[in-house]
Design a protein around this nucleic acid. Structure first.
Lengths: 144, 144
DNA sequence: GCAGCTATATCAAGGCCTTTATTTATATTC
DNA sequence: GAATATAAATAAAGGCCTTGATATAGCTGC
């Protein structure tokens, strides 16, 4: 190996993401949701009537992955999908009443995690962290 | 929602991790490995003869998840598992010649990504990022 | 009008991961 | 020595995600 695993920045990023996912996962489970389902509902609340493809882009997953999540959510009555009025290829997706309730319950818990994170840092530190992470993405995606 | 999704630090962390995974995934695919398989082989190279349970802890996954990965790796002849000399419950896992080769090939590519990341920052910036991420983990896991 | 491009939706196969539960072996404690 | 605790391995079920492929709708340019 040309580079000791311990010095690789990727590991630190992964650890943080892992801790976050574990915590969020158990947080949203109190509303009987998975993180993927919660993310989809949250994005849907922001942009009602969005297409599954656009939703997938918002959630940073493939359209195929989103199809599966939406199928589960629809079966459980948390969303409804209706044909776009004039664009026959598109299905508009919206939260149902039950979906809104589940989202609210899950978000209350999820925000608790985000709050812990926000409270850990000063505003300046948050900006620094955000900027450094943005540069990570930039560096990783450069010259791909 | 009590907190706009855009201001949640979790999103920034997730984005960085996602970019990393995407890049690493395509990097190690040149050696016909997945990131999970690469991570297992890398940990195995660091600690030859380790048990599957310990390997799982190293890779931050459950023993069940690791069992699946090891099964694939063993089928493809990249690792070998032999009974522990006196501890009958434990299987020692080791890289085969082919496994070592695959790991070397994959690591060459993976290190390229880590190199881009390391080159993006000064030593001080790396330390700051590492420290901030460590505090994220700390904050998330506090009072669980 | 039509070819070609782009975007949406969805199927299928291959993997990975989690939770829950079981079996078995070693270690500890009395 | 026997009961208890701890740890390893593994099975099963439920989800999520990826890549690759297919079908179709709308748009663009000729």
């Amino acid at each position: 190996m040309e580079m000791l695993p311990q010095v690789r920045l990727g590991l630190d990023i992964k650890r943080a993401e892992q801790a976050l996912m574990t915590a969020k996962s158990s947080a949203v489970r109190t509303a009987d949701l998975t993180v993927a389902q919660y993310a989809a509902l949250l994005a849907l609340a922001q942009r009602p009537g969005i297409s599954a493809a656009a939703l997938a882009r918002d959630c940073l997953v493939t359209p195929q992955a989103m199809t599966g999540v939406l199928k589960t959510l629809q079966t459980r009555g948390l969303i409804e999908r209706t044909a776009h009025p004039w664009h026959q290829r598109v299905l508009e997706t919206r939260l149902t009443e039950a979906g809104q309730h589940a989202l609210t319950a899950a978000d209350t818990e999820a925000v608790r995690i985000e709050r812990r994170l926000a409270d850990e840092f000063t505003a300046e530190e948050q900006d620094i962290l955000r900027a450094l992470l943005a540069r990570c993405v930039q560096a990783i995606e450069r010259d791909r």
